[in-house]
Computed example of a mutant assay.
Amino acid sequence: MAFTNPSREEIKTILENVGNIAVVGLSDKMDRTSYMVSAAMQNRGYRIIPVNPQAAGQKILGETCYASLKDVPEPIDMVNVFRRSEYCADIAREAVEVNAQTIWLQLGVVNNEAAQIAEEQGIQMIMDRCIKVEEAIVRPVRA
Results as ranks from 00 to 15, higher is better:
Tyr87Asn: 11
Tyr35Glu: 12
Gly19Phe: 03
Ala143Glu: 11
Met127Ser: 14
Ala118Pro: 04
Arg32Phe: 03
Ile117Pro: 05
Met125Trp: 08
Lys70Glu: 14
Pro50Cys: 14
Ala22Phe: 03
Ala92Thr: 02
Ile91Val: 07
Ile117Ala: 13
Met36Glu: 15
Gly62Cys: 09
Ile123Leu: 07
Gln121Pro: 00
Gly57Tyr: 13
Arg142Phe: 06
Ala2Cys: 03
Asp28Trp: 09
Ile76Gln: 11
Gln124Thr: 15
Lys132Gly: 14
Arg142Ile: 07
Asn17Ser: 12
Phe3Asp: 13
Val138Met: 06
Cys88Gly: 06
Ala143Asn: 13
Lys29Trp: 08
Ala89Asp: 10
Met127Tyr: 11
Pro53Lys: 05
Thr64Gln: 06
Met78Tyr: 04
Asp90Thr: 04
Tyr66Glu: 11
Ile126Val: 15
Lys29Cys: 02
Asn112Val: 04
Ala143Val: 06
Leu69Trp: 09
Gln124Trp: 05
Glu86Asp: 15
Pro73Val: 05
Cys130Glu: 14
Val23Pro: 02
Ile48Ala: 04
Lys132His: 11
Gly122Ser: 14
Cys130Ala: 13
Thr64Trp: 00
Thr33Met: 07
Glu63Tyr: 01
Gln101Ala: 08
Tyr46Thr: 06
Val72Thr: 02
Ala100Gly: 10
Gly57Glu: 10
Glu86Leu: 05
Ile21Asp: 12
Asp90Glu: 13
Val24Pro: 06
Glu97Ile: 01
Ala67Asn: 08
Ala95Tyr: 03
Glu16Gly: 10
Gly62Ile: 08
Glu74Thr: 13
Glu9Gly: 06
Asn52Thr: 01
Glu9Gln: 04
Val110Pro: 02
Glu9Lys: 02
Tyr87Ile: 00
Glu113Gln: 11
Glu113Arg: 06
Glu119Ile: 00
Gly25Thr: 11
Ile117Thr: 03
Gln54Cys: 00
Ile48Val: 02
Ile117Cys: 11
Glu113Asp: 15
Arg139Tyr: 05
Gln58Ser: 14
Ile14Tyr: 13
Glu135Ser: 15
Ile14Val: 14
Arg47Thr: 10
Val133Phe: 10
Gln58Ile: 00
Glu86Met: 08
Glu74Ile: 08
Ile117Gly: 09
Pro75Cys: 00
Pro53Arg: 05
Asn20Lys: 09
Pro73Asn: 09
Arg47Asp: 11
Asn111Tyr: 02
Phe82Asn: 02
Cys65Ile: 00
Pro6Leu: 09
Ala89Gln: 08
Glu134Ile: 05
Ala67Gly: 13
Met41Arg: 04
Val110Gly: 03
Ile117Lys: 01
Val98Gln: 11
Asn20His: 13
Val79Trp: 01
Ile131Tyr: 07
Glu94Val: 01
Thr33Ser: 13
Ala40Asp: 15
Ser68His: 13
Gly108Trp: 09
Ser34Asn: 12
Ile91Gln: 03
Glu86Arg: 06
Ala95His: 03
Pro53Tyr: 07
Met41Glu: 09
Asn80Met: 07
Pro6Met: 12
Arg83Lys: 07
Glu94Ile: 02
Gln42Trp: 11
Ala67Glu: 15
Tyr35Asp: 12
Arg8Met: 10
Ile11His: 04
Ile91Lys: 04
Tyr66Gln: 05
Tyr35Cys: 02
Leu26Thr: 04
Gly108Arg: 08
Leu61Ser: 06
